[in-house]
Design a protein around this nucleic acid. Structure first.
Lengths: 355, 355
DNA sequence: TTGAAAGCGCTAACAG
DNA sequence: CTGTTAGCGCTTTCAA
C-alpha cells in the first residue's frame, strides 16, 4: 500500500485543477474512493457509521463531484442538450421554462444554446453540444443544414434521443424518425385566414417575419395565403423590416394605410401586430372598423392594448414540458421518443371582431 | 503490437456510448491516437499528407471530440458558467447575448442556468455548475446563501475566476475579492428621485418589485426614498403584486389614484410602469400632468406608448460584454478579473416632464 | 458492506 | 513529425 501522505502530496503537484477529489474525501474519511463514490450515488448501500464519516469528510473538504469524470466512467449521459433560436425571445422563454421544470428532479442537466435563427450557427452549436455526449437532443424546427442533419442522424443512430420541437406538419412523413412535438404552422395560417374571412373580410394581408430563417412564420403565411385564395379572397404577403419589432409593425401599417383595399391583416408575431395597432391609433385608422388585426404568439402586451389584440396562443410551455417528458421516457425505456401534436388556439379579442 | 482489428471489435462490446473515438479515427487513418489528437488541436504540427488522411478519417467516421475526456485529461477548463435570475426576462436577455458574443471565438463554452430569483435555487445550481469544473463563474448580484458563498469562496481559492454582475455598490468593499461588474442601485434610485424632484414634485412613490428576492430593485427603492427625504419631499414605498407585470402596474395605479397627494411615481421596472401608464389613460388620469411616471430598464414597449415612458437605461448588454472580457483576461493572464462600474443612464421622455 | 483491478476518451511530457 | 507512457477523476465488474 502506498503512503497516503506522500501520495496526497504528489497528487497536488500534478495536473488537474486543485480541487478536492474523491480520493481526498476517502483519505479524510479513512475509506477507499469507491466507498465514497457509492455513498454519493446510493447512500443506502453504505454502513450508517461509515456514511456519517464520509459526509463529514465531504463537508470538511468542500468536495464537489466532477461530472466529466463521472460521465466518462459510466458512459451514461445525464445531459439533455437543447438548441433554441433565441433564448431571450418571449415565445421561447416559456418553452425553456417548461423544459427546465420537466427535467428538474430527473437528475438530468439541461445544456442550452441559441442559434440566433441561423442554420449555420445551429450546425456549429450542434457539434459543440454533441461534444458533451448528451443522452438526448432537442432542436427547434425541422429545417437543418445537410451537415447538421447528418450529425443528428449519427447521434440518433448512436442511440441518442432526438426531438424536434415547435414544428409538426400534419401531412409530412418524417423520414429521419426523429420525434416531433409542436403543431402545423400552415394549418395555423389557414385558421388565421379563416377567422378573418368569417368576419367578412375579402382582401387580406399577411405580414411576414423580417427574420429570413424563421421558416415557421413563412409557413404560416403560406397557409394563410392558400386559405384566403381558396375562399376567393384577395391576399398579399408582405415582409416586415428587421430591428425593433414594434417599429417594424408601425412601418408596415403606414404602408398598409395606402393600400386602401386591404381590410384585415395578420402578422407573424404579436410584437409586429402591436406596433401596427398602436400606429393605426396614432394615425386615426379605426381598428377593427377600418382594419382588423390578428397577431401570433399571445404576448402579454397584446392583452393590454385597446382594443386588445386577437392572436393565436401557441403551446409555448406545453412544448417544453412535452419535450421533457418524451426525452425522459425515451431515456428510461430505451425506446424512441414519441411525437405529439399540441393545439394552437385562436384567441379572439377586440382587434379582429367585425363591428 | 496488438491486432488492430480484434482490438476494435473488442472495444465496441465494452462500456461507453457507441460513438466513434479518437481510436477509431486513428485506425482509419493508419496513425496513433495522439497524432489525431494533435491534428485536431494544432493542425499545423502534423504533416500535410497525414493531416489529409486524418481529415478523411474524421469525416468518414463522423467523429466528434468528447469534451469530457478532453477536459479531464488536460485539466484546463474551457467552461464559463453563468447564473442568471431569469433567462427569459428581457432585462437579462441582452446580458446573456453580450456574454455569448464576448465569449464567441474564444474557444470557451458558456454554461447557463437560471435561479428564478431564488437564492436557494442559486445554491443548488451553483453546485451543479461547479460539477462541470468551470474555469470561470459569473453570478448575478452580491447576495448569496451562506453555503453558496462558501462554494464561491472555495472555487475562487481554487483558482476559478468569479465575477458578480449587475451589482456594484460604490461604498461597499468586497470582502471576498470577487470581481464586480455593474452599477450602484441605490445611486440609481437617488437619480430617479432627484429627477422627479427637479420636475417640481414633492410627494413621491416608489413601486417596488413584487419579487421578494429582487434585492436590486429594493435597493433602488431605498436610494429613492433616501434622496426624497433628504430633499424634504414626501415618499411612500409600495409593493407591486406578482403575476403579469402589466396587470400589477395597473393595479398599483388604481390604488395610487386614491392617494391624491402623490404626483409622481417611480417603478421597479418598465413593465410595471407601462401597466400603470396604460391604466392611467384608461382612467383619464393625465400623465404627466396629474401624475408623472418613471420606469427602469428601458424595455422596447416604453418607447411606443404615448406619452413615451421616461426610464433608466441599464447597461444590459455592456454588462455581459464586460463580464466576458474580464473572464477571458483573467483566464489568459492568470490574474484576478477586474471590477468595473458601468453607467446607468436616465432617459427622459414624455411621462415625467413637468407640463 | 467494502475493496481491487481495469478502463471511459483524451492529453501532457518526453522521447525518438 | 510521430509515438510511448502515464494518468485526469470517476465507475464498473467481480471478488472478498
Amino acid at each position: 500500500m502506498k503512503s497516503t501522505t506522500s501520495d496526497d502530496a504528489n497528487r497536488r503537484q500534478r495536473r488537474g485543477h486543485g480541487r478536492p477529489t474523491l480520493h481526498d474525501v476517502a483519505d479524510a474519511a479513512g475509506v477507499t474512493r469507491i466507498t465514497v463514490s457509492r455513498y454519493i450515488r446510493e447512500p443506502g448501500k453504505v454502513a450508517p457509521e461509515t456514511a456519517a464519516r464520509i459526509q463529514a469528510a465531504i463537508e470538511q473538504t468542500g468536495y464537489v463531484p466532477n461530472h466529466q469524470a463521472g460521465q466518462l466512467a459510466s458512459g451514461a449521459s445525464r445531459i439533455v442538450a437543447a438548441l433554441i433560436p433565441n433564448v431571450g425571445h418571449s415565445i421561447f422563454a416559456e418553452t425553456i421554462q417548461g423544459l427546465t421544470e420537466g427535467l428538474r428532479d430527473s437528475g438530468r442537466e439541461l445544456l442550452l444554446m441559441a442559434t440566433g435563427y441561423s442554420l449555420e450557427v445551429e450546425e456549429t452549436q450542434l457539434r459543440t453540444l454533441l461534444g458533451w455526449a448528451p443522452g438526448a437532443l432537442v432542436v427547434t424546427g425541422r429545417h437543418h443544414t445537410a451537415s447538421a442533419l447528418q450529425l443528428l442522424r449519427d447521434a440518433h443512430a448512436g442511440g441518442t434521443a432526438v426531438v424536434e420541437i415547435w414544428d409538426h406538419p400534419e401531412h409530412e412523413a418524417n423520414a429521419e424518425g426523429f420525434a416531433r412535438i409542436g403543431f402545423d404552422h400552415r394549418a395555423v395560417g389557414r385558421t388565421m385566414a379563416r377567422h378573418l374571412i368569417e368576419q367578412g373580410h375579402r382582401s387580406l394581408a399577411y405580414v411576414d417575419s423580417g427574420v429570413a430563417e424563421d421558416y415557421r412564420a413563412h409557413e404560416r403565411g403560406q397557409g394563410f395565403a392558400a386559405e384566403a385564395k381558396a375562399a376567393g379572397a384577395q391576399v398579399k404577403v408582405l415582409p416586415a423590416g428587421t430591428g425593433d419589432a414594434f417599429d417594424a409593425g408601425r412601418a408596415v401599417l403606414r404602408g398598409l394605410g395606402a393600400e386602401s383595399s386591404i381590410t384585415a391583416a395578420a402578422f407573424a408575431n404579436d410584437h409586429l401586430a402591436c406596433g401596427a395597432l398602436m400606429e393605426a391609433q396614432a394615425l386615426g385608422i379605426a381598428v377593427p372598423g377600418r382594419l382588423a388585426l390578428l397577431g401570433f404568439g399571445d404576448f402579454p402586451i397584446g392583452r393590454q392594448l385597446t382594443p386588445a389584440l386577437s392572436t393565436m396562443r401557441p403551446p409555448r410551455s406545453e412544448i417544453g414540458q412535452a419535450a421533457a417528458e418524451a426525452v425522459l421516457e425515451a431515456l428510461s425505456s430505451g425506446e424512441e421518443p414519441g411525437s405529439r401534436t399540441l393545439p394552437c388556439e385562436l384567441i379572439v379579442r377586440g382587434s379582429s371582431i367585425a363591428a
